[in-house]
Design a protein around this nucleic acid. Sequence first.
DNA 1: AGGATGTTGTGCTTATTTTCCCAATATGAC
DNA 2: GTCATATTGGGAAAATAAGCACAACATCCT
Lengths: 209, 209
Amino acid sequence: MTDKQVPDVVVGRLPLYLRTLKQLQTEGRRVISSAQLAKLLHLNPAQIRKDLSMFGEFGRQGVGYTIPDLIAQLERILHVDRTWEMIVVGAGALGQALVNYPGFEINGFRIAAIYDNDPAKIGKPIGRFIVRDVQYMPEDVRSHGWRIGILAVPEAAAQAVAEQMVSAGIRAILCYAPTVLTLPGNVQVQYIDPIVHLQHMAFYLEETD
Amino acid sequence: MTDKQVPDVVVGRLPLYLRTLKQLQTEGRRVISSAQLAKLLHLNPAQIRKDLSMFGEFGRQGVGYTIPDLIAQLERILHVDRTWEMIVVGAGALGQALVNYPGFEINGFRIAAIYDNDPAKIGKPIGRFIVRDVQYMPEDVRSHGWRIGILAVPEAAAQAVAEQMVSAGIRAILCYAPTVLTLPGNVQVQYIDPIVHLQHMAFYLEETD
DNA sequence: AGGATGTTGTGCTTATTTTCCCAATATGAC
DNA sequence: GTCATATTGGGAAAATAAGCACAACATCCT
Ligand SMILES: NC(=O)c1ccc[n+]([C@@H]2O[C@H](COP(=O)([O-])OP(=O)(O)OC[C@H]3O[C@@H](n4cnc5c(N)ncnc54)[C@H](O)[C@@H]3O)[C@@H](O)[C@H]2O)c1
Ligand SMILES: NC(=O)c1ccc[n+]([C@@H]2O[C@H](COP(=O)([O-])OP(=O)(O)OC[C@H]3O[C@@H](n4cnc5c(N)ncnc54)[C@H](O)[C@@H]3O)[C@@H](O)[C@H]2O)c1
């Protein structure tokens, strides 16, 4: 099932290419070379060409890549030439920021519902939603066939909630809780933890105050 | 200065080890083997041992690692055996969530100020702060010697604001704006963009609705 | 005391990823 | 048409990262 032909590191760079190409498109650019794109992304041009060449021949020798075409190809490859509906579980500070973020809709994703287990939050409006009781989440996920979930609950609840999401049919989880989830191998998981990034950078900072 | 001995991928895993060890410590565990830690992190035990061995010999053969000791070592290595003060620029939805996040303080970081350029936000309270006019940011950064900044402004403003931060003395930026910053090589930058992760996962999802 | 079991640190091997390089092709100037 | 310049795609080499396997040591049980 998983295209083991294509290394995961390569897949991980495609969204960065796509993001930059969309940005260039809004600036009115029509064509770009791997060298120019590489400069914007601080990458090696050969790496970009090789990454793209795993999926086809999208460029023109001597010319470069036509931006709208390459955007369309990348959207197809990444399966974002459609809109995926997503759920958010956890209507705290982060869940609220996510629900109001317009970036999802213009990049292939759309929040369809938000859940919490706090009676004080259930039924309250957040953005264009009413927070739903998380006990209805599995049923909603099943009936709508939703496949993607954003997990924004406290760490202590993350594993249990993730398991409920998966057993309801969720197959991709973006986890904001600072923990590693243990889930079946056919479930995609990605993590966002600012502490990890800050500590990574702190390593390179000099100790002096 | 930068331990070019130590690959950046290794540095990137240390915060994950530290996070898990702290979690284990709260559960009362005192000792852990590389095999057990690897299982929790879904990594190879040899990789963990090799990563740690780049910085010293922290384990005991036949026994494993003493959790409090290893935590102390990792905190020292990552330079989080202290508290770094940080600024947040951008008091929008995300900036507000960040300011109220308690995770920073227990992991070596502390938000010291938050800035915006919107007159409607400047002067308003957010969490324990009053939003300050971003025009005072450079002066504040210089006078306090702050080195770390979180960038939570719209993409269109990110590069310019980042340059102001750097020229004021900021040396590490956690960027939430969906763009690649171009900054001097002595400035650390890390990015958080949920769209990138979602598109990465979407690649592996079957196209079927 | 000795054997069974468990664990580290690391030399070496294997796997993966990145980069180099160049034939092939495109465009524009004259 | 020819030449100068720009650029891709991909084979091959180089660089980097991951994993195996084992000597050395620790603990526990009898
Ligand atoms: N706020 C931030 O800036 C930030 C930054 C980094 C990471 N995080 C992480 O993101 C997660 C959410 O952060 P937050 O600041 O929004 O926290 P929060 O405490 O504001 O919100 C968490 C929400 O999850 C709900 N919840 C708890 N258990 C639940 C369950 N079993 N089912 C459904 N809902 C449940 C709570 O009622 C609450 O509304 C946490 O894991 C946090 O560590 C937050
Ligand atoms: N909200 C989310 O969940 C989310 C998710 C992913 C990424 N992001 C990204 O994070 C960034 C912030 O997101 P947000 O939702 O908080 O946006 P937001 O629009 O709510 O807030 C942005 C804030 O930045 C301020 N700002 C604009 N220009 C500024 C400048 N030059 N100096 C100082 N402040 C300035 C604005 O006044 C505003 O208060 C954006 O780049 C966004 O794309 C947000």
